[in-house]
Design a protein around this nucleic acid. Structure first.
Lengths: 148, 148
DNA sequence: CGGAGTTAGTACGTGACGCGAACCAAATTA
DNA sequence: TAATTTGGTTCGCGTCACGTACTAACTCCG
């Protein structure tokens, strides 16, 4: 057995595997956070998006990278759980605005809190400086690829 | 309109949102890589794991964070596509060893190549130094939480 | 005005995915 | 040998995502 005797030097996975593995790690943690409230990751994400927005189905689908027909189902299920509500848009009889119910806001708050705790824990053993660096690098990537 | 006039200062999302958003970004890219070969992210991950291992179902399930019953289905589908094979383990008549077929190896190679290209592109606009830093930070998190 | 096209959303069928519970057979322990 | 544990599968269910087809509302243009 080598586990005890070899103090393994931290292996650099490279940028691709590093990002991929990290994403699995984070997604797993988000999955646990969501599961604690009986939700899925995509529902968690939906609630997160809706915290500060009240988009139409189309816009929501674009934001989440889903087909519009997938959105119908996603919102259906969230609505069935009382987290989300459909309202008719004022000046367009076709479109719908999706917003959080009170219960939805409450769930979103809990999720954000738990995610803060649990995802934060992933980075807990980093020094403050390195954590800040990671945060800045992650933001740089996200900002560079989310909104262009 | 503010988009043209305001050269938005890069917003730091904080460690939690930064990691979460980044994970969504990477997962989306991996989803595209897999979809190009008619596969899902979890199948991609399965092939990735099997590149250098030949584990049993249980071990595989643990590694992927799935229930063993979910593994049966996952391997079933991969097997049906000719990517994977079940072999009986030599000294234990219950257990099974899962390994890549030739076709599976070929698929895994293509996936790795594409992932390299497309996930790499996410970090393409970083300076070499910052990319190396990100790689090292990601590896540090992964190494700290994958194998303890 | 009125039809042709476009846009927003839904309905439906299909397949992948993941879980828990029940189950089986081989292996281990008592 | 009997009881238990271990490795896997089966089954039923709900979620998720997609593509296709469809309806209703809006826009354009003649």
């Amino acid at each position: 057995m080598t586990e005890d005797t070899v103090r393994r030097a931290p292996v650099d996975l490279g940028i691709v595997d590093g990002l991929a593995q990290l994403s699995f790690l984070v997604q797993a943690e988000l999955g646990r956070v969501a599961a604690d409230q009986g939700l899925s990751v995509i529902q968690l994400r939906l609630l997160g998006v809706l915290r500060d927005r009240e988009p139409g189905m189309q816009e929501l689908a674009r934001h989440l990278g889903l087909d519009k027909s997938s959105m119908t189902g996603l919102v259906d299920r969230a609505e069935r759980r009382g987290l989300v509500r459909r309202t008719r848009a004022p000046h367009d009889g076709r479109s719908v605005r999706v917003s959080l119910t009170d219960e939805g806001h409450e769930a979103a708050r809990r999720l954000a809190e738990d995610a803060g705790r649990r995802v934060g824990a992933l980075a807990a053993h980093l020094t403050d400086a390195r954590r800040a660096l990671l945060s800045s690098l992650a933001s740089e990537l996200v900002n560079g690829h989310t909104e262009l």
